[in-house]
Computed example of a mutant assay.
Amino acid sequence: MGSLSTKIHAIVDALGNPLHFELTGGEAHDSVQRYKLLQAIEPTMKQVLADRVYDTNAIRALLNEEQAIPVIPTPRNTTR
């Protein structure tokens, strides 16, 4: 059952100023938006600070291609 909520997915700079955002329905899964949103980062971004849910091989590969340093904690149940 869906809800009447909205999720805001945003990229902000170091001062918290919004650079890019997407709105989705509350029932939409975050994993769909994460990769799509990170594709919108500017090439000048050198570090990407993100939550544990962004720690995927695809996202790390994308950031590596963009020559950005991922500052993402590894989930506790992940071994690398």
Results as ranks from 00 to 15, higher is better:
31 S>T: 06
35 Y>K: 14
69 I>A: 05
11 I>Y: 06
61 A>F: 08
76 R>T: 01
65 E>F: 05
14 A>M: 11
23 L>Q: 07
36 K>V: 00
52 R>E: 11
50 A>K: 03
78 T>A: 10
28 A>K: 15
45 M>V: 07
16 G>M: 07
71 V>K: 12
63 L>Q: 08
2 G>V: 08
31 S>H: 13
32 V>I: 13
49 L>N: 07
7 K>S: 01
2 G>S: 14
35 Y>D: 01
32 V>H: 14
4 L>G: 08
16 G>Y: 08
52 R>T: 05
63 L>E: 06
74 T>P: 08
13 D>M: 05
54 Y>F: 15
61 A>S: 14
48 V>A: 03
69 I>R: 12
24 T>C: 05
49 L>D: 01
68 A>Y: 03
48 V>G: 05
19 L>Y: 03
55 D>R: 07
40 A>F: 04
74 T>W: 10
57 N>W: 06
6 T>P: 03
54 Y>R: 06
79 T>N: 13
21 F>D: 01
39 Q>M: 13
72 I>N: 03
39 Q>I: 00
51 D>M: 04
2 G>Y: 11
72 I>D: 05
58 A>P: 05
33 Q>T: 13
76 R>A: 04
5 S>C: 10
72 I>E: 03
17 N>G: 04
55 D>P: 00
6 T>S: 07
43 P>S: 10
1 M>W: 12
75 P>L: 11
62 L>G: 04
36 K>F: 02
12 V>W: 01
35 Y>Q: 09
21 F>V: 00
48 V>I: 15
72 I>V: 13
54 Y>A: 01
60 R>N: 13
10 A>Y: 04
38 L>D: 08
72 I>K: 04
19 L>T: 02
11 I>E: 02
62 L>F: 11
45 M>L: 09
66 E>V: 00
11 I>C: 03
56 T>W: 13
51 D>P: 10
55 D>S: 06
7 K>L: 03
40 A>E: 15
62 L>E: 08
5 S>T: 12
33 Q>P: 02
23 L>T: 03
17 N>E: 10
22 E>L: 12
8 I>V: 14
35 Y>P: 02
37 L>S: 06
26 G>P: 10
16 G>N: 05
12 V>E: 01
2 G>D: 12
80 R>L: 09
29 H>W: 05
10 A>M: 14
37 L>N: 07
46 K>E: 14
26 G>K: 05
18 P>C: 10
60 R>T: 00
75 P>F: 02
69 I>D: 11
65 E>Q: 15
1 M>A: 09
2 G>E: 13
70 P>A: 05
55 D>A: 11
67 Q>W: 04
18 P>N: 06
70 P>S: 05
12 V>S: 08
11 I>T: 02
42 E>M: 05
64 N>S: 14
